[in-house]
Design a protein around this nucleic acid. Sequence first.
RNA 1: GGCCCCAUGGACUAGUGGUUAGGUCACCACCCUUUCAAGGUGGUAGCACGGGUUCAAAUCCCGUUGGGGUCACCA
Length: 521
Amino acid sequence: MMQTAPGQRVRTRFAPSPTGYLHVGGLRTALYNYLYAKKMNGDFIVRIEDTDQARKVEGADKSLLRTLELTGIVPDESFIHGGNFGPYVQSERLGIYQQYCQQLLDRKSAYCCFSTAEELEENRKLQMKQGLQPKYNRKWLPEDMGGTMPESETRKKMKEGAPYVVRMKVPDYISIMFDDIVRGPVEFDSATVDDQVLMKSDGFPTYHFASVIDDHLMEISHVIRGEEWLSSMPKHLLLYEFFGWEPPRAAHLPLLLNPDRSKLSKRQGDVAVEDFIKKGYSPEAIINFVALLGWNEGEGCEREVYSLEELEETFSLERIGKAGAVFNVEKLGWLEKQYIKSRPQEKIISAIKPLLQDELEKRGTDMDVDRISSDEYLGRVIDLMRERVNFEHEIVTFSSYFFFDPDAYDEKAVQKRWAADTNTLLREFIALLEKTDDFSADNLEAVLKDFVAPRGKKPAFLIHPLRILTSGVGFGPSLYHMLEVFGKETVLRRLKKGIETVNAPKQNEEGLNTRGIVIRD
RNA sequence: GGCCCCAUGGACUAGUGGUUAGGUCACCACCCUUUCAAGGUGGUAGCACGGGUUCAAAUCCCGUUGGGGUCACCA
């Protein structure tokens, strides 16, 4: 079993193909690679695997890197960060692959294959029908390599300029074993391994070929990737063998799963990291969440919240689990709340300000713009709201009443909280507020209690209507604190307008609120 | 179908022969409370199945079942 030489520098890599946005599964793979490198004082490399010209998406490489960095995962080497092992984009390394391919051809570890796509397809169908594993039939395997194709045929085709691919010649009936860091020993029979295409007819290498060569040339010590690659490991190992190279250690990560336990995919929800960020999830929560999907500190450790720095200290490949993990966003939501609760106020303020600016421009407001967009005001709003929102942006949207007068009053809440004499008392109370200058929460509470007690009512009798009239909704932070933040002018303006809009319900004979009874069909 | 991997409550998981099977999310109840949250307390719920090995198995072995991955000139 080949192992990394002791003392060898740890170098890991994340090797996405630039075909779209960063997938959460990809993020986790990148994260584990990054964490292990940091933990071992090694290097983390990002390499762009753009050998499929057809699927290549313009600009995806940069956006992948940008999203990665947004989450705090910064590569030591990449096509943007540079490094001594470049280029870090495979399409810029074509000459290298061709050179190594020629080596294999010369050593008779690989051969040219002129079979057409139609031929291969037909062959595959036939094998499927017979219940066999679809495999190349080795039609073009040369005679001197144990096949049936005369060298003259190959030469003839070559002269004609017919398109061809280069395939590796997998040895018959040998056992390929390796020790996966997360799976343990795994064994394959070479008879089940196909003569993998190494070079495509367009002159580009396949993933398998390019990644083996690059991993070796870039001195990658550990290949940490998804379990979907486990079954192509024997091909890669064979290539290392052909070249006489020492393979890196492998760690195949358990897959991220859909709720139905199939491999995580679009269709069943968001998978793009950027989509989660757009929704309002913060990078630290996403990282934290994804890190715990398949890894834990173990040893009775019951911590759930980890910063990236803390992960860098505690991470280990040995503690990665084997079973796939369902990507269930519920816990991500909880984590997000944890982060909102502990996030420094200044950070929230600066995140929220642009949002508020946008809203103000769109809607305008009856409030003093300078005041409500000041750090001081926002800070007070945050104090009241940070434990009540699911996302930072909800401080502006979900509790918009801190910035905009309500333009409607929650009908259900009104029905529930209004009694026949509510508006009468409200009018009296508004008059009292006009004469009150101290709008501190403490004072407002005292004023309201003193007002309500002699009238035989509980504070709640007015608290709810006051809340609804000033905020438009039946829920929110402590009323007194909320009114304190609003300030006298705003409170009175909203109350006066509101009481004209919300009418007292009609009474039945018993004097009971009839609006509370809603008959639905 | 061949090959490979996997298997603790609904989800993430701790657990490596002896535990009342622990924690987190979610859910339920209660407490706190003007509402909504937050917080506190308690609760429902789990070792896929069958054989072994052993004084003793969630833990070790074998099988079964179930799930997943992979079998491209895609990565």
